[in-house]
Simulated scan of single mutants.
Amino acid sequence: MANVTYQPVDEPKAVAPEVWVVDSGPLRIAGMPIPVRMTVIRLPDGGLLLHSATQFSFELLRMLEALGAIRHLVAPNTVHWTYVREWQSHCPAAITWGAPGLRRRKAVAEAGLHIGRDLADGTTPEWQDVIETVVVHGRGIAEAALFHRPSGTLVLTDLVVNVEPRKLPLPVSVGARLVGAAAPHGRAPVYARAAFKAGGERAAAAAARLVALQPERVIFAHGRWFESNGAAELRRSLDWLLPG
């Protein structure tokens, strides 16, 4: 199912200064193939941050280590953490960051995933003020968005899904349209929107902060990401969550 993915897969592709994406997959959800993506950011100290790690391979590890030492592994929401455990085993010196509440999930404990730090709003000394974190809290779900200030790049996971129907098998493309996650006007699937919308004013305020960052580009885990006109595209995709 190579057409589902964004070729080439499982190798870093530069998208902005100090920012790369690694397209992978297809990831199968209930047997349905969808593309999946990791974002890599190189920090001022030369170390790498891996956001929403995709499938591990020694070849990918080699390519990433050519860019810098892997120092941070980010599990940014309550779903995108399953590949992090294997990256931990091969990058033992890296700090693993988890979305709020992730460490308390039974499946995480059973998988042996160790969360070293919890993601929180604002900046952290480890990321040397080049990354701002905005946490969007919903009901039973939380997602931590990272904004890389030097490149104007906002990194999300599932707050925006923009899969391209032409790249998917017919049943999946129909499903993507039905749940509102189909390009070119993709949003989070309707069930995810309901969970985040239940976060009320707090979630709406976080969405407004994301748009106020005025990102030049917006990267997310599934589908065609916003390579340009990021702020306007983000405002459209988050219109269901924004205040008013």
Results as ranks from 00 to 15, higher is better:
Arg104Lys: 12
Pro17Cys: 05
Asp45Gly: 10
Ala205Tyr: 02
Arg193His: 07
Val134His: 10
Gly68Val: 09
Gln128Glu: 14
Met32Arg: 14
Glu143Ile: 06
Leu159Gly: 06
Phe196Thr: 08
Val161Glu: 04
Ala145Arg: 04
Val4Glu: 09
Gln7Asn: 10
Pro33Ala: 10
Ala198Met: 10
Glu143Met: 07
Ala94Tyr: 10
Pro35Leu: 02
Glu11Met: 15
Trp240Tyr: 15
Val4Arg: 02
Ala120Lys: 13
Gly175His: 02
Leu170Ser: 03
Ala145Tyr: 04
Pro33Gly: 09
Lys197Glu: 11
Gln214Ile: 00
Phe226Met: 13
Gly200Ala: 12
Val161Phe: 01
Thr39Arg: 00
Thr124Trp: 06
Thr39Phe: 03
Ala182His: 11
Gln55Tyr: 01
Gly46Lys: 03
Pro215Glu: 11
Pro35Cys: 00
Val15Gly: 03
Thr133Lys: 09
Val218Asn: 11
Asp239Gly: 02
His72Met: 02
Leu159Tyr: 05
Lys197His: 14
Lys197Gln: 14
Phe147Asp: 06
Gly186Leu: 02
Pro17Val: 05
Trp81Ser: 05
Arg42Asp: 02
Val19His: 02
Ala109Trp: 05
Ala206Asp: 08
Gly116His: 15
Thr124Met: 03
Trp20Asn: 08
Gly47His: 12
Leu156Met: 07
Trp81Ile: 02
Leu64Lys: 11
Met63Cys: 03
Ala206Gln: 01
Ala205Pro: 04
Ala188Met: 15
Arg105Lys: 14
Ile219Glu: 11
Leu61Met: 13
Gln214Phe: 00
Tyr83Val: 00
Thr54Leu: 01
Ile115Arg: 07
Trp87Met: 09
Glu18Ser: 14
Ala221Val: 02
Gly244Asn: 13
Ala183Thr: 02
Val211Asp: 12
Ala75Phe: 03
Ala111Leu: 11
Ala30Met: 14
Arg236Glu: 14
Pro215Met: 11
Arg202Ile: 14
Val134Pro: 08
Pro8Leu: 06
Ala94Asn: 09
Val9Ala: 12
Glu227Phe: 05
Gln128Lys: 08
Ala206His: 06
Phe56Trp: 14
Leu27Pro: 01
Pro76His: 11
Val179Ala: 08
Thr78Lys: 12
Ile115Asp: 07
Ala75Pro: 08
Pro33Gln: 10
Ala66Ile: 01
Phe147Pro: 06
Pro44Ile: 07
Tyr191Leu: 11
Pro26Ala: 05
Ser151Gly: 09
Glu18Thr: 04
Leu73Gln: 09
Ile70Gln: 01
Gly199Asn: 09
Glu132Ile: 03
Val36Ile: 15
Glu59Ile: 04
Ala109Lys: 15
His51Arg: 02
His148Ile: 07
Val22Leu: 06
Pro17Ala: 13
Ala198Thr: 10
Ala14Cys: 06
Ser151Pro: 01
Asp158Asn: 12
Gln7His: 13
Glu59Lys: 14
Gly152Pro: 03
Pro35Ala: 00
Ala66Asp: 12
Gly175Arg: 05
Phe196Ala: 08
Arg117Val: 10
Leu48Trp: 06
Arg202His: 13
Cys91Asp: 00
Pro165His: 05
Val211Ser: 08
Ala232Met: 08
Glu86Leu: 07
Gly122Arg: 01
Arg149Gln: 13
Tyr191His: 11
Arg103Gln: 13
Ala145Val: 06
